[in-house]
Structure formats: C-alpha cells, structure tokens
Nucleic acid binder design. Sequence first.
DNA 1: TTATCCTGTTACCGACTGTTACAAATCGTT
DNA 2: AACGATTTGTAACAGTCGGTAACAGGATAA
Lengths: 238, 238
Amino acid sequence: MNMRLEPSSSFAADARSYHPEDATWAIDVNELRKHVTVLRHKLAAGQSIYHAGQSFHSLFLVHAGFVKLVELADDGREQVIGFRGRGDFLGTESIGLDAYACGTVSLESGEAWELPFPAMLQACHQMPELNARLAAALAREIRTDHAWMLTIGTLNAEQRVAAFLLAEGKRCASMGFSAKHFMLRMRRADMASFLALTNETVCRVLTKLHDMRLIAVARREVKVLDEGALRSMTGQMA
Amino acid sequence: MNMRLEPSSSFAADARSYHPEDATWAIDVNELRKHVTVLRHKLAAGQSIYHAGQSFHSLFLVHAGFVKLVELADDGREQVIGFRGRGDFLGTESIGLDAYACGTVSLESGEAWELPFPAMLQACHQMPELNARLAAALAREIRTDHAWMLTIGTLNAEQRVAAFLLAEGKRCASMGFSAKHFMLRMRRADMASFLALTNETVCRVLTKLHDMRLIAVARREVKVLDEGALRSMTGQMA
DNA sequence: TTATCCTGTTACCGACTGTTACAAATCGTT
DNA sequence: AACGATTTGTAACAGTCGGTAACAGGATAA
C-alpha cells in the first residue's frame, strides 16, 4: 500500500462567510425571535440533542457543528438516516407526533437553537412567509431522502461512496470551505450505515479510489483529486 | 415447483368503509373546499399525474387508485421511491420548487383531487388546523421514507420482501380490506426497485416464501399464511 | 509515560445477489 | 382466435459484497 495523504497544515484558506439567509428556504431567525423564544444549547461531541421516544415539543436549528440522525428498530437494528450541519433543522420528522421518532448524535462540538414548536405554529400564523418556509424545508428534506434512495437503489458500493464524497464536498463548499479538501466528520461505520454498506466495504472502496488516484484519503481527511472522474462514476453531469 | 395459489372467488369479504377523517393527519376536504377550488381528475392505468420537470402549482390527494412515485437521474437511472393510495398526498416533495421533482405513474384506474398550492397556503392562513395538518403530513412522509431506509439498510432480500408484504397488508387493512389476502398493485420490477433489489431476486424470494408456506403467491395475488413468521423475520414485534 | 480503547485497515472466504438467458403465462389488440 | 408485447418465472453462472478475524494506528485516560 502506497503512502497516504500527509497531515496538511494549510486547510481551507478561502473560507467565505456563510449566509443562510441567501437561500429561499432559510428562516429569518431574527424575525422569528419576535414571536418565538429561541434557546441556545451547546453541544459536545457524542451528545444527543434528543432521543427517540423523548416527548416532542421543539424543533432545533443547527447553528454550528455536525449531527447524525439515527433511526432505530425495536430489535436493536440501527440505521444512519442522514447528517445535518449548520442551517439544517432537527426534529422535523417528528412533527405531529407526541414523541421524537429518531435519535440525534452530535459528532463534534457545536450549537443548536431550540424552537418550541407550538410557538412556531403560532408564529406561522403571524408570518405567512415562515409558514411557506417551513413547508419548503420539510419538502427539501423529503427530496434529499429521495435522492439518497436513488443513489442506494441504483449504484454499487464504489459509486455510492463516490457520490457521498461529492456530496460532502458540496456541503463544505456551501459553507465557504473547499469542496476538494475536507475532513469527514463521521466514522466509517456511520458512513457505511448511511450508504447501506459495511464498515469494511467503505474502507476497501476508499482505498481503491485512493489507489486509482481519484482521491487522497488518510483517516478522515479527504482530498478530491479527480472530481470529474468521481462525477462520471456516479452518473452526475458536469 | 409446487402448485401456486388458485384464482380465488371470495375476495376481501369483510371490507369496512374507509374513514380518513379518523386520522389526526388527515385533511377535512369539505372544510377545505370553502377556501380552495378542488379539481377532480380521473386516472387511467399507466397515466402520470405529473412529470418531473413540469411546473409545480398543485398538490394532489389520491381519492382512489394506486400510484407509484419515481425518482429519475440525469443519466436515465430510475428508482421507485414509494407507493401512494387513497388518502395520500402527491406533490408534497416539490413544495418550494418551481417544478415537480419526481414522476408519478398511476398503476390502476383511479381519481386524484387537485389542490392548487397557492390557494392551499392561503387556506392555511385562514385555517390554523390545516396548517398543522399539512406539516404533519409532510413529516409523516419523511418518517415513512426513514423507515424504508432502515429496512433497506439493515435487512437482506428475504427480509425486505417480507417487510414489504406486511406493509402492503397493513395498507389494505387500513382501507378496510383483508391484511392477509390482497393483490399487489405493482409489477415485480417496481417492487424490486423500491426494495433496492432486482426483479429476479424478488421472484426468487417470493417463491421461497411460498415454498416455506409463509405465503401463497400467484402472480399478483398474495395470501399471508404465517404472519407471525413474516414479522419475526423482519424483527417486528408482535 | 503506559495502558486501554476505539477506529480504521487489510486479507480471506463464501454466500447472497446481480447478470444473463430463455421459457411460460398473461394481457391487449387486431 | 391469433398475434405481439409485456410481465413473470426459472435456471446457471459470476461477482460483489458481507462476515470474520487479526492487526495497526491514534486517541484518551490514568
């Protein structure tokens, strides 16, 4: 096995500031504060924001950090449903229920803003804009789930991992960091669960992509060397 | 191969009437009609209610029939995302977009009610209840997607098919028909796509479940002979 | 520091599932 | 009834991917 990526010192130098308010689906928190009491919560790595089964009363907005969503079955089976970062909602899947339907685990230190849901509904009545935004945010969540179902249903292991790396790069880019050089913020096992693969298969594929010179990977650090090749693997245009 | 299920004459004798208004997430269409013009559309088998890319302006409520949702990629890959029947919304995934994000194909003759979305939003402002219901319906959709991601990510082919049959049975039961004797309303290929399997694997598994005397299957007709065994295969309680 | 744990990596084997090919049954249309 | 098209079923074969195991490298704590 050849040398892996050496620990880098210069990392994402061109980070621009993040403007969630640019996006049409984003929520104006300052405006919202007039109607809803927003509580701030610090998050430690490994901590959960809410557990499945806990009584539902609030949505959360991830302000900093990175969170995984975990669906769990009665018999103990677990499935990573997705990852959420800055600007994403948590708890939306549980709207209309008495208890949260899935679990959340913070993967690094961060901050989440709690939005009590009854107050949110009232605010929706006062701010028609917010109403549309909330519906749009939920719809957006449905679409990303669908997109991953397409990925998992039609691509093999290699292609899934490639798609995942591109998606993570895109997420970084949307936050003003480099799309071609970033840190994975989840374990191999989480990535594997999300992609409906095993730990070992993900490792093997990463090594293969590395050997093919499409990426350079060392532990959680990833450099995308040939984005075009990755894209063409996954059937994505451009 | 032993004899398959013979064509049956007595079919779902105990059909009770269907009461969507019992469910907390359901929408009161009569009330809604005061605010929104509801258009009825007859559906023929094979017809699409909306195409991906078509401009988005309405949600639809399936009043009768059965519809598949299809996500399609730029390069032609297709994935069946789910199935919708009486009482389910269509188009929710496209809220906030200018164009529908996925395709719909009616699998049998039926009827869909069109709900112009701008009017829906206005109605939400007049009927706070509707607002909460719509959000709850979207959240419910997210949860069913998550549940299938868990199924596909953690179960093998045999277990997935078993889970699918149980789910279809449950859907029939919720409409007042038998949960143990029903017709599949989609092709093997659609089932396979939805479960992230191939046509042939689904056939093999159905045959195996038949030989194991857990079900009796002939083409699209299914009898559940040992529901408990199916459940325990999939890790579902009771 | 040392010890311990967790995560990540690689190798080997084989089962499950995809692939390919073809046959049979059903449906729709002429 | 006959024809073609579509859907479903079966079989043989091949390959990917999962299972298991062992080990290495970091991380964490004492």
